[in-house]
Design a binder for these strands. Sequence first.
DNA 1: ACACTCATATAGCTTCTCTATAGGTGCAAC
DNA 2: GTTGCACCTATAGAGAAGCTATATGAGTGT
Lengths: 110, 110
Amino acid sequence: MSSQPTNLLQGTLDLLILKALSTGELHGLGISRRIEQMTQGTFCVKPGSLFPALHRMEEAGWLSSLWGESENNRRARFYRLTKTGKAQLEVEKEQWAKVAVAMTNALKAT
Amino acid sequence: MSSQPTNLLQGTLDLLILKALSTGELHGLGISRRIEQMTQGTFCVKPGSLFPALHRMEEAGWLSSLWGESENNRRARFYRLTKTGKAQLEVEKEQWAKVAVAMTNALKAT
DNA sequence: ACACTCATATAGCTTCTCTATAGGTGCAAC
DNA sequence: GTTGCACCTATAGAGAAGCTATATGAGTGT
């Protein structure tokens, strides 16, 4: 386990959610768990961060959702990527790469 | 040249400023130029972002500043890292590394 | 005198994330 | 059967940070 969970960098949550959904639909808390798993426990997205983001992203047309039943027989809202959402994932992946390269260069500058 | 400048990820500006000052004192716009140079033009920190950040960081005790004269005979405020600021640079470098690793893992997850 | 660049400063806005809290439902233990 | 717990969604309220736009002043060149 990786010690303490770190706070997100603002602007990375959307990308993490898009990526989490890229392999298939999930419900809210499922997304949260998937992000935790994908990042080896580094990030821990709490409901109060997650749901507003999901609503915002659905509003933006990146996600679509349906009520369904979780693996524990509970009422849950399942989210999946729209076509636009898949495109957005690519955009944000590229942006992240650009930022990461720039930061890396900056940090090793003399 | 790297096409269009990208917006900062919130939370990275402090680190960039600390790093920019790690090789010696600079005045405000000098910091801005140094960041642009360190990141090969990827980031472009405008005055409206920079100065509030500098004031905030000085308030936090990471920077100290003095009025002086720029290389163009202009009144300019020069900033340098305090001891606390140098420590903070290390902290933020580690945090960035952690985040970058987590994001990289997440993005290559299947 | 004028325009231009360098340099700092601040107000107002927006966006995003965090903390805290609340409500509803299935399930198991007692 | 009701108590308690884990699961799932939801929202309010607050705070931090960065962006745009604008203002001010000083030096430089024409």
